[in-house]
Amino acid sequence: MKTITIDGRSIPFEEGQTIMDAALAADVYIPHLCHNPEFTPHGSCKLCNVKVNGRTCSACTMLAAEGQDVINNSKELNDARRAITQMLFVEGNHICPGCEKSGNCQLQALGYHFNMLDAHFPYFYPRREVDASHPDVLLDRDRCILCELCVRASRDVDHKNVFDIAGRGINAHLIVNSATGKLADSVLEVDDKAVEVCPVGAILVKHHGYEVPIGQRLYDHHDIAEISLMTEGGGSDE
């Protein structure tokens, strides 16, 4: 069987697998945020950056190939990943104390994973629009990290193409595919995969929140690495 090495450990892979796929299958955690194994890799968040034979690559998009020597868990990489997480926090308006996604949020969980103790960078406090027009779904752009998981889910699973990203650079923002640009006028429904897949608190089911008690939330007692391997790893049923 073909293998790569990740942090000195030999990891088997099959043709067509990315480094991320091979790592997850072997229960090796590579931090990731925009990646979800159910969807086409996107390679935008850069948290899964690894060193492959000395060069930095996104593990979620880089195909595994014989002879790759991958460094994943190093101080340099984790420092950079922490900095990226901090940038995500300051770019949006992530007010964890009041957010109903707290405890179940991947961005917050990564903050804990990387031992992020402050924001480091100055907050941007951007003005972003909340779209509460839909009867069942709330879109709070304050918390959007532009991972495009909803874009991919709506396009590839729901086949509705409700979401997209418009604008470039710091002006990039999530838009809704409807005549008015409002969710109410889109074909989105509450059971859509696009609603469920949001890793942060940007797309939420209305009228609910804080229903899971503190202590029973996803990341209350488990690091995101454990949860990831439990749900996405090789030993998982999914």
Partner: peptide, 14 residues
């Protein structure tokens, strides 16, 4: 203002 109502009990306790 502008926040969804179900957030209120958790928001305002701050």
């Amino acid at each position: 203002r502008g926040r969804p109502y179900w957030e209120l009990p958790v928001l305002v306790q701050r």
